[in-house]
């Protein structure tokens, strides 16, 4: 007791955000350096099935609660639960995944615990028993080294910064049910429902991202349906181009991204935007199609392992970041490229 690492598993109706297991992996390597145990926390609907997965990933102690107040995600009761377990366990380090929920729970838990919070960390080192965190700032243009003067230290870890542990389904256990300590009448929000459920691979977790930019609308040879005005034709053209982007992404098991220009021109929803005012991503492979590579876009994707650029303009700044470049029309290149990968990757 008193030297525990608490790991928060972020799940939604039984679907675990994959970065959660990477956080468990990070906790395991920290526990070796810091000593002490790991306590895994599962909140939300049907925590038992998620707890079972946590044991497969190597968790030895899993706390969960079936309090009806935790059935739907609301930050206030979830924070109450995290804080209660953190205090009872005397947690010295509380790790969350950098997700929408993880970030705000970390923020709010830090208030209750009188602790410092370091969100969206990409590397952790141990120095004299204290964690030194590296966080990208200015959209990754710089890295900040940061630490908490006193514990507990509250951290969220960015997706793809750590490896998830190996899964071994022979490892099992029994989760410990705890009272979440939530009084429903104290909660002033109510979840009414969900709309626009999304499928597919999320940008943050994606190993491969294929992105389209303003150039995607640039194909005069396409004949749009009659009766469209100029703007509708532009968006229609872009959507034909994003179909090609989507097909390549799908063959590679990846996600579709977009530049700010493409989002501002209404080609694709904001959720797809990569860049300083969109999502910051670092996949293994980033294929930029018809994206010139404004500094704000570069900030969101420059840490990708391998960058490929397809652009008509040989002077486009994106080529400077690209391991491979093709000076050409994405409408010419993408269909055969998708086919080539389909043949090679089966």
């Amino acid at each position: 007791m008193g030297n525990q690492i608490l790991v928060y598993i972020d799940q939604y109706k039984g679907q675990v955000m994959p970065v959660s297991w990477e956080v468990l992996g990070a906790a395991q390597s920290l526990a070796e350096k810091l000593g002490g145990g790991i306590v895994v926390l599962v909140a939300g609907e049907a925590p038992q099935a998620v707890a079972e997965q946590a044991f497969h990933y190597g968790a030895t102690e899993v706390y969960c609660s079936d309090s009806p107040s935790l059935a739907d995600y609301r930050p206030e009761p979830f924070t109450d639960f995290v804080v209660k377990v953190a205090q009872e366990q005397g947690a010295e380090v509380v790790l969350f995944p950098t997700t929408t929920r993880g970030r705000e729970l970390a923020a709010m838990s830090a208030v209750d615990l009188g602790a410092g919070v370091m969100p969206d960390v990409t590397a952790l080192e141990v120095e004299d028993g204290r964690l030194i965190a590296t966080r990208p700032v200015y959209a990754g243009k710089l890295l900040a080294k940061t630490y908490c003067e006193t514990g507990p230290q509250i951290i969220t870890l960015r997706a793809r910064a750590y490896k998830a542990p190996e899964v071994d389904s022979s490892r099992t256990g029994t989760p410990i049910q705890v009272d979440a300590g939530v009084v429903e009448s104290d909660v002033s929000t109510r979840v009414l429902g969900y709309t626009q459920a999304k499928g597919g691979v999320s940008l943050a977790d994606a190993g491969v991202i294929v992105s389209g930019g303003r150039g995607v609308s640039n194909n005069p040879s396409l004949t749009p349906p009659e009766g469209m005005d100029e703007k509708e034709v532009e968006v229609w053209r872009a959507q034909q181009g994003f179909k090609l982007v989507g097909e390549l992404a799908s063959v590679l098991g990846g996600a579709v991204g977009a530049s700010r220009a493409a989002v501002d021109a209404d080609y694709v929803p904001y959720e797809n935007q990569v860049g300083q005012t969109g999502k910051l991503v670092s996949p293994d492979l980033y294929i930029a199609c018809g994206i010139s590579g404004a500094i704000q876009h570069q900030a969101g994707m420059r840490s990708s392992k391998v960058i490929v650029a397809i652009n008509k303009d040989p002077d486009a700044p994106i080529f400077k970041l690209a391991r491979f470049g093709v000076v050409g029309d994405l409408y010419d290149i993408l269909p055969p490229l998708t086919e080539a990968f389909r043949q090679r990757l089966g």
């Binding site: 602790a115 243009k141 900040a144 080294k145 940061t146 400077k320 491979f324 470049g325 000076v327």
Partner: peptide, 20 residues
Amino acid sequence: LVRWPEVVNPPVREITNEII
């Protein structure tokens, strides 16, 4: 409680550009 003693430039990546 949080200190950030140092801000550094990200490591320079050597990228060999190859036009296909």
